[in-house]
């Protein structure tokens, strides 16, 4: 297998708060291959968004990367200075945020904001930048790019704001795009449009994507491989089809059984219990208080993420190799 584009190794991110140290990410590892779409799935507090921020080195105090390495295209991003990272952000790796409206500057037109990103990383004149921007906008299916560019964020809908964010993220043709809940908060019809746009961009521009979301439906339809996170740890890594057809980890099984489905008439069975607080993680396997298969061993010993078969891995003692 060729060298992966991104390698996250044993990453640990801690937030020190009044109530103690919150282990937001507690030793996770995964890889992203060139041209693939990887889904990072988890509930709130599972550490999925923090992982995305860490790849761009955007963790602010009181948060801190305490251990681990992030290797992008053969180089460790952890060693980069802030200045070097600024050259990476936007041009090599870029990010699409959940709430486009709050991430856009309200006093600049959408066109100006997109141009800024392009001018920052490319040695071009403003006229060239705006030409490039208009071309990109029509590529993402905006009918009237000039009128769109002259709008301020509050003048357009949430779906259109998200489109502007996407253009900002891909205008420098980065190798890796991290999309953090790109469709949450949008209506299903608009969500479908954005999902199609992201898939199209990936194919046409040969991007690699990391899609961070809590919606299993979204990843099932857009990703090649899925990393399931729970309580700061990776529970399971599987190619999409296998994950949904034959989930390995009890958490994945429980999660899949707990969601109501629009396509089949099956009653969901809820997972018992609550997601543990980041400050007060259970000992051993973090899922054991809610797990139907938990035994004494699970309370004491933390299962490692081990390869199982067909490029799949799971962190559970009871998954058959």
């Amino acid at each position: 297998m060729s060298e992966p584009l991104l390698k996250v190794q044993d990453l640990k991110i801690h937030f020190s708060t009044f109530y103690g140290v919150a282990k937001a990410v507690d030793g996770i590892s995964f890889e992203v291959q060139h041209g693939e779409a990887l889904g990072l799935v988890g509930e709130s507090g599972s550490g999925k968004s923090v992982t995305g921020m860490a790849i761009l080195q955007l963790i602010q105090p009181p948060g801190k990367v305490v251990a681990g390495d992030i290797i992008f295209a053969g180089k460790s991003l952890v060693d980069y200075s802030e200045k070097e990272m600024q050259n990476v952000r936007g041009s090599k790796i870029s990010m699409i945020f959940q709430n486009p409206r709050t991430c856009l500057n309200p006093v600049l037109t959408l066109g100006r904001q997109i141009d800024r990103v392009y001018l920052q990383h490319n040695n071009v004149t403003p006229a060239q930048a705006s030409e490039h921007r208009l071309e990109m906008l029509s590529r993402v299916g905006i009918g009237d790019p000039i009128r769109f560019s002259n709008n301020y964020p509050h003048q357009v809908s949430g779906g259109m704001c998200q489109r502007a964010m996407i253009v900002m993220a891909i205008i420098c043709e980065p190798q890796l795009v991290i999309a953090d809940e790109p469709t949450t908060g949008l209506d299903v019809t608009i969500q479908r449009q954005i999902m199609e746009l992201l898939a199209e961009m990936r194919e046409r521009m040969n991007e690699t994507q990391i899609l961070i979301t809590h919606d299993l439906g979204v990843v099932a339809e857009t990703c090649h491989r899925i990393v399931v996170m729970y309580a700061s740890r990776v529970m399971e890594v599987s190619p999409t089809r296998q994950l949904f057809n034959e989930p390995l980890h009890p958490y994945t099984i429980g999660l899949l059984n707990s969601i109501p489905r629009v396509d089949i008439d099956e009653q969901p069975t809820p997972l018992p219990g609550y997601v543990p607080n980041a400050l007060n993680r259970p000992s051993g396997c973090p899922f054991h208080p809610r797990c139907s298969r938990a035994q004494e061993r699970c309370q004491v010993e933390q299962p490692e993420l081990v390869p199982v078969k067909d490029g799949r891995s799971a962190a559970c003692f009871f998954v058959e190799k």
Partner: peptide, 23 residues
């Protein structure tokens, strides 16, 4: 369209999708 737009957690399902233009 509304029902068709709901993402389904089943990668094997290749449903015909009518996606809606505009907002």
């Amino acid at each position: 369209v509304l029902i068709d737009s709901v993402p389904v957690p089943d990668p094997d399902q290749k449903r015909k999708r009518a996606s809606l233009i505009g907002e």
